[in-house]
Write a protein that binds this DNA or RNA. Structure first.
Lengths: 234, 234
DNA sequence: CTTTATAGTGAACATACGTTCACAGTAAAT
DNA sequence: ATTTACTGTGAACGTATGTTCACTATAAAG
């Protein structure tokens, strides 16, 4: 009894100042807020060392400031949360991509600018990008395939983008997809290495920027020399 | 007392037939045998769904047919076992690479043959290759960096290999490394996708073979058109 | 043959886990 | 104002985990 009251009192006083933050908004807004908290917690726990499959449900709730049972009000289990993270992550990836495209439009040093903007976004949305990189090959197959599906979609987008370039005349749609795959692969790889570097070593970062830029340039040189069977023969 | 005797008897009788297998060899050979069993068990448990960091020590010992405490006679913890797996995996990778190189020597359809032999080896050593693919980006940083170091080494090997090609004249050593990186990246990626495919779908497999071959061809076309700053100007 | 070194045992430990349940508090609907 | 719908609580459960310890059995060394 005394114990119960005491705990309740502690809770109230602890919340106290945050009250405006904690209990603001409609019921639905608050639900979304703890949902966010769960997603954020999961991402945060993965930082650096751990993979998604090694993060426990209880850890997530603990880190989100919620009791374990509350988890089930939002997800049926960790896998569903994982899929939600895939969604979120690719939303930011696509947003980054769009902005990188816009920034690169002047087309002088197009490749360099694209790499710079993209890796810049990767840095600001570090956790999302790292999540994608980690779960692309590791962990459960359902999450892995969800990631792969999104990467494929993303590749297709880039492929239609590439089709607008003048040199694309000799290249079949299928081969454009193949080339886009190479580009995406290269950039994603670079992104993961980049995010995994000791954060205050601009030396290595610059080297990676340069190498990635070169690799993309080489790919485009290759594309220029490419001639698909049966395409552009006329 | 009776219980103890009974258990001992059961153990003896259960072993019975396998006696030659279980207890053959010197003390040291037997130790190596259970060490192998532990490594194998860990790889086996990772098959398909799980990442290394989600495999528990107890699972490994259980699956290896040994009591948990016995684990510590071989490794200080799971991380050490993980590093041993990195070692093993890259030994088979390098062996595969060497043989792929030998098989490709006739140099007609060099790329196609390399891809075929390499992916062939990947299939026979599925678990090692999958381990590498998974732990390259996921899991603990110490294992991740061990994998990355080996990949780097592997890339350097390929790079000196490429230097022997005639078209390498215009390319600086540094750029050769960059190109080798692109090649390795492409092949490893393809390998993981390949091993992750529903095993009895030769349709998709063929498509992947083709796409990978094309990507490598494009890279080599790019390399042909490449001219490093300050190299081959004379 | 006797002694020594050591791979594997089995029990115990404290701790963490996922999931369940009845319940409390409170927006939203009536 | 009363009822309903639902997010979050706290306790409990059975099970799994990593690590320790004294032990047994037996090759290898003396």
């Amino acid at each position: 009894m005394t114990l119960r009251k005491l705990r309740a009192a502690r809770r109230n006083s602890a919340v106290g100042a945050d009250d405006a933050l904690q209990s603001a908004g409609s019921r639905d807004e608050r639900k979304q807020r703890t949902r966010r908290a769960l997603l954020d917690a999961a991402l945060e726990l993965m930082q650096g060392e751990r993979s998604f499959s090694s993060v426990s449900l209880r850890e997530v709730t603990r880190s989100a400031g919620v009791v374990p049972a509350a988890f089930y009000r939002h997800f049926t289990g960790m896998e569903e949360l994982g899929l939600a993270l895939v969604d979120d992550s690719f939303k930011t990836l696509r947003r980054s991509m769009r902005e990188a495209r816009a920034a690169a439009l002047p087309a002088t040093h197009l490749i360099r600018r694209s790499v710079e903007t993209f890796l810049g976004y990767a840095q600001t949305h570090r956790r999302h990008f790292q999540f994608i990189a980690k779960e692309r090959f590791g962990g459960s197959s359902v999450i892995r395939f969800a990631v792969r599906k999104e990467v494929h979609l993303f590749t297709s987008e880039l492929s239609t983008d590439l089709a607008r370039f003048p040199l694309a005349g000799k290249i079949s749609t299928e081969d454009l997809q193949m080339i886009a795959g190479l580009v995406v692969q290269t950039v994603l790889m670079a992104t993961e290495v980049f995010l995994d570097m000791p954060q205050n070593d601009p030396e290595d970062a610059a080297q990676l920027y340069q190498q990635t830029e070169k690799q993309l340039r080489l790919i485009f040189i290759g594309a220029q020399g490419w001639r698909s069977k049966g395409a552009g023969r006329g």
